[in-house]
């Protein structure tokens, strides 16, 4: 990297990468990840600036910042590239503050949808099949399925962000994360259907009941889902269902 751009070395990028894992250590309601973004970028800023310019750069990155913690990698990688341009006096039409402000919300939405809404439930659904069989591989399966894409975006996101600068936006668009998130969610629903069917079948077999009664679970799940959408909390739903089950077994 030093050969191509001459300013931020791979060693400094490695330090930035390690700091990315602590991005949210000081998450607060006022400026969310702003102090974290400054902490992550600090090793690169120290290479690029000195004295008053460095203090000014620090202040620049203490402004409001919030995105998905994993998607912060390409955003902050590109921010380093833009800071480097500024340092060389070759700043383009879009400044680093404008870039961060413009890109953080769409990237947050992409990351939330893909990692929290898509990948995490899918990994959990697969792992729960192992747990249902009593296999202690369940946690390892979950961690592997989740962390391969996680570490990929953390690592290559930072690298591509730094090497491509503003063009990293186009590169990420090509991956079509929102579409991929929808596919993952659909896959999760299919897996959960199979998992619930297996658990229901096992419960009915254990109690000596006919398996066909299991079909009544579909309207029950639909009702519970409707209540959840209406704002009934998970805690309330679980406790109420548990109380109904206890009452039914005792008096039924």
């Amino acid at each position: 990297m030093e050969d191509e751009k001459g300013l931020v070395s791979r060693w400094v990028l490695l330090r930035v990468w390690l700091r990315l894992f602590l991005l949210q250590a000081s998450w607060n309601f006022e400026r969310l990840q702003s102090l974290g973004a400054l902490y992550v970028l600090a090793p690169a800023l120290r290479v690029l600036y000195r004295d008053k310019d460095l203090a000014e750069a620090y202040r620049r990155h203490l402004e409001y910042f919030n995105t998905h913690p994993f998607m912060a990698s390409p955003v902050l990688g590109a921010a380093i590239a833009l800071e480097e341009e500024r340092c060389r006096g070759a700043e383009g039409t879009l400044g680093v503050e404008e870039f961060k402000g413009m890109i953080m919300a769409p990237y947050a939405a992409m990351g939330d949808g893909f990692f929290w809404g898509g990948l995490r439930p899918l990994a959990a659904a697969v792992a729960l099949f192992f747990a249902a069989k009593g296999s202690l591989w369940a946690p390892l399966v979950f961690l592997t399925l989740f962390n391969v894409p996680h570490l990929w975006i953390r690592t290559f996101g930072l690298w591509r962000g730094y090497t491509l600068g503003l063009k990293v936006v186009e590169t990420l668009q090509r991956h079509r994360l929102p579409d991929l998130a929808i596919r993952l969610k659909e896959g999760t629903l299919v897996l959960l259907g199979g998992l619930c069917a297996y658990l229901t079948y096992r419960a009915l077999q254990g109690e000596g009941e006919s398996s066909i009664w299991g079909l009544s679970v579909i309207p029950l799940v639909a009702l519970l889902g409707w209540l959840a959408r209406r704002g009934v909390s998970t805690l309330m739903l679980t406790m109420t269902l548990a109380a109904l089950v206890l009452a039914f077994v005792q008096f039924g």
Partner: peptide, 19 residues
């Protein structure tokens, strides 16, 4: 037996409601 089944069903239902 039924209580152990209730947990994943509630979890799945909530996920269905929010996914």
């Amino acid at each position: 037996t039924w209580l152990k089944l209730a947990f994943p069903l509630v979890g799945t239902a909530v996920l269905l409601g929010t996914i």
